[in-house]
């Protein structure tokens, strides 16, 4: 396997997992929670480092996962007990947790092998250098990690498809047929935390958000059907990963940044030129309509 392939393959796996959870988050209108969680997991990761003294993945995932849930829970708490608007509650919680994370990093910078750059850019370029052997196979560590997470996400979406769909489109009906929206909300949030954290290492904190939000948003401009939405979102995520790698390589820039540039470009193209709702089409229609109204009776 070439290094190029290994990096792109990892990126595609991350993008697929992000696109799947991102679609449901968009439908549940909780996309900004991804931004909140991706910042708020920082202290969890740092504490896991400090407690175990290693870059072991499992404690890191657990620490960050717990922080992710804590963010969700605290936001709910501020909303219900503190009567704060949802967006303000989120803004208060995640900025605080992020600040704590940065303070921890600077206090224990000698013990913590984690710098601020890693938080921002991710280290997907180093994927091929870090190998790990399981089941007799020696593969990049990121393969095991993101592959495992991707399998879990696919299983979650596959098994809970009906419930997730109902919770997203018609929560009231979901409750009436005995589906606990609360349980599914927290289940989804747990998976989101997991995806965010496991992607964190490879693409960085904020770019996870781009991978979670941009593909479903682009897909939403093209279709309303959930199955298509998921499919197109995954396709866009994958395509951006591949193209993004080459863009980054060409300009000698961060791969995660390159992927985001492509994601943004794809959104812009669809936003302008989508067949039904594209800005250009609608603009032309808007200009043509009066004429066609005049023209039609003569037919």
């Amino acid at each position: 396997m070439s290094m190029e392939f290994e990096i792109i393959f990892t990126a595609v796996m991350v993008a697929t997992a992000c696109a799947l959870v991102g679609t449901f988050m968009m439908l549940r209108k909780i996309t900004m929670l991804a931004d909140a969680i991706s910042h708020a997991v920082l202290p969890g990761i740092v504490l896991a480092f400090l407690l175990t003294g290693s870059r072991n993945v499992l404690p890191m995932l657990i620490g960050a996962g717990l922080l992710g849930l804590l963010t969700t829970w605290l936001t709910e708490l501020l909303r219900n007990r503190g009567r704060v608007n949802e967006d303000a509650a989120m803004g208060t919680v995640f900025t605080f947790l992020f600040a704590v994370g940065v303070i921890l990093i600077s206090l224990f910078s000698r013990q913590v092998d984690l710098d601020q750059d890693c938080v921002l850019y991710g280290e997907i370029a180093y994927v091929p250098l870090d190998l790990e052997t399981h089941l007799g196979l020696t593969l990049p560590r990121a393969f095991w990690q993101t592959g495992g997470v991707l399998l879990l996400v696919v299983a979650f979406v596959g098994l809970g498809y009906k419930e997730l769909k109902l919770c997203a489109f018609d929560p009231a009906y979901a409750v009436s047929v005995g589906i606990s929206t609360v349980v599914w909300h927290y289940a989804l949030m747990s998976v989101v935390s997991l995806v965010t954290v496991s992607s964190f290492e490879s693409v960085g904190a904020i770019l996870v958000v781009a991978l979670i939000v941009a593909p479903p948003a682009t897909a939403f401009l093209l279709t309303d059907k959930l199955r298509w939405l998921l499919g197109i979102a995954v396709g866009i995520g994958g395509l951006s990963s591949v193209l993004g790698y080459y863009v980054a390589a060409y300009y000698n820039a961060s791969i995660a940044g390159g992927i985001t540039v492509v994601l943004g470009a794809l959104f812009l193209i669809v936003f302008l030129f989508a067949p039904d709702n594209g800005l250009v089409i609608r603009w032309q229609k808007g200009r043509r309509t009066p004429q066609s109204v005049v023209a039609e009776p003569s037919r």
């Binding site: 850019y121 770019l207 995660a256 940044g257 985001t260």
Partner: peptide, 23 residues
């Protein structure tokens, strides 16, 4: 011009602009 929920638009612009910045 789209039916995207406000928080999606916010997160989209935030992350894409920032990503371009990182790039």
């Amino acid at each position: 011009n789209t039916k995207l929920p406000p928080d999606v638009v916010l997160a989209l612009v935030l992350s894409v602009f920032f990503g371009i910045g990182i790039f």
